[in-house]
Design a protein around this nucleic acid. Structure first.
Lengths: 238, 238
DNA sequence: CGATCGCAACGAACACTGTTCGCCACGAAC
DNA sequence: GTTCGTGGCGAACAGTGTTCGTTGCGATCG
């Protein structure tokens, strides 16, 4: 390579790194080359640097993907809720989110991994929850329905993402790291409840009001709810 | 390590390798150590051999995972359909599948990747389709509902799998391989239609009858259908 | 004005991964 | 008893995420 002399000239106006720059570079790579191409090395190369430099702004690849996910969801416009038209608005919102996600093939999978807790997602959930409550659902049903919608969005985005872009399957990490990751995940799950109960009621009024309901119910109860919704929905189809 | 002498004695009755043995070993590893631990090396070690030996029976890791998935689904018992009780039977079937999948944390993600086409899944879809048709749904609605159920099963299994077992996120493969994989995937998608149209009507009566409907409709139409089902289902909740 | 300090950036390395190539040795056939 | 085919596998390749220790730049202090 050329010597490091005149480095200022060889890299004319290299923008200083930042979390936003890293996330933006990640989204650029994702859109053009698919999720498997979003490696730390590839994103770093996009920023004309080495992989180690990214770790100053992003804890790991997982966090980078979640930041990217939240950035995309943040682009979805949430119109003020009109209680009378809650069905139409809910359908439109979900459609918009799915469309936004499918523009970045593979992001759906990231959202499926664990319930997202970024600010954009919280805002989205709050909006959806408001619409569901406006529709007359009980708080418990609205909370579970919100969960169901989140899952559905992720699943649809995942599936269409596979068709539209490169495929995904790989795994990473060692067995020991994995155990640590599982522990961290549990810890994170624990803080999800805390984060829900500690929400600012001014910013997320509905979410804060349904914090208890959102984390209520066993896995089986939630599963049964989902199945009931689907079957009832089938019967009500035109 | 000890020399290779007396290898017959040090490996008393080493069962000959076979596809079933590989799949079984994979499931053993998956149940005990999670999806990220299901590496070719780990599965090979479980069989007391090297990773290269697996490729005689399995094309690659992806195919191994799908064989494992189908093997698990094959354990789900499908009771003969009673048209009058189609709702209960449908709910029970879906519940059983989800429970079977959640015993192997991470398999849900495999099923989400692309619509599974193993024999056990086909049998399951056929059964579900029969129940939906018995419920009076049109062929088109039944087909899409079947798709929706498949997605829901995968998504639920994925989400609960994350909580129950080790976490998942990694990616693998190079950019060039990826493009090739995407092409292969498209080809595979193409053959899915062919496979559906070429189904044995005696073995999969309902599936064969709805082959056209199963692959009909744009992505947006399917998305709208899913949203409509969910919203109608919410309203019909108790 | 010159020296010093802090910290972002990074080159190199580690421990993994999936997958392939080519050799080796064992069992069967002649 | 010799030869042949084939299944099994050791070693290697090209990647991956992540970390460690150094480097070099910019701002602050004497």
């Amino acid at each position: 390579m050329t010597p490091a002399r005149r480095s200022t000239r060889s890299r004319p106006a290299k923008a200083p790194l930042s979390e936003e720059a890293v996330v933006a570079a990640g989204l650029r790579v994702l859109r053009q080359e698919g999720l498997t191409a979003v490696t730390m090395r590839r994103v770093a190369a996009e920023l004309d640097t080495g992989p180690a430099s990214l770790y100053v702004y992003v804890a790991n690849r997982d966090e980078l993907l979640h930041q990217m996910l939240d950035a995309v969801v943040a682009t979805v416009r949430l119109e003020p809720a009109d209680p009378a038209r809650w069905r139409e608005e809910l359908a439109a919102t979900v459609t918009r989110v799915v469309h936004a996600l499918t523009e970045y093939p593979g992001l759906g999978r990231v959202s499926l991994g664990h319930i997202p807790t970024g600010p954009a997602w919280l805002e989205l959930f709050d909006h959806v929850l408001g619409l569901l409550l406006a529709g007359g659902l009980s708080r418990q049903n609205a909370a579970w329905a919100c969960d169901l919608i989140a899952m559905h969005i992720g699943a649809v985005a995942f599936e269409t993402g596979v068709g539209a872009g490169p495929a995904e399957t790989g795994g990473s990490g060692a067995a020991q790291d994995e155990l640590q990751a599982a522990l961290d995940r549990r810890h994170e799950n624990a803080t999800i409840e805390d984060r829900l109960t500690g929400l600012d009621p001014a910013r997320y009024p509905y979410l804060a009001g349904c914090a208890a309901e959102l984390s209520a119910g066993s896995a089986d109860a939630r599963l049964a709810f989902g199945i009931r919704v689907l079957i009832n929905g089938f019967s009500a189809a035109p």
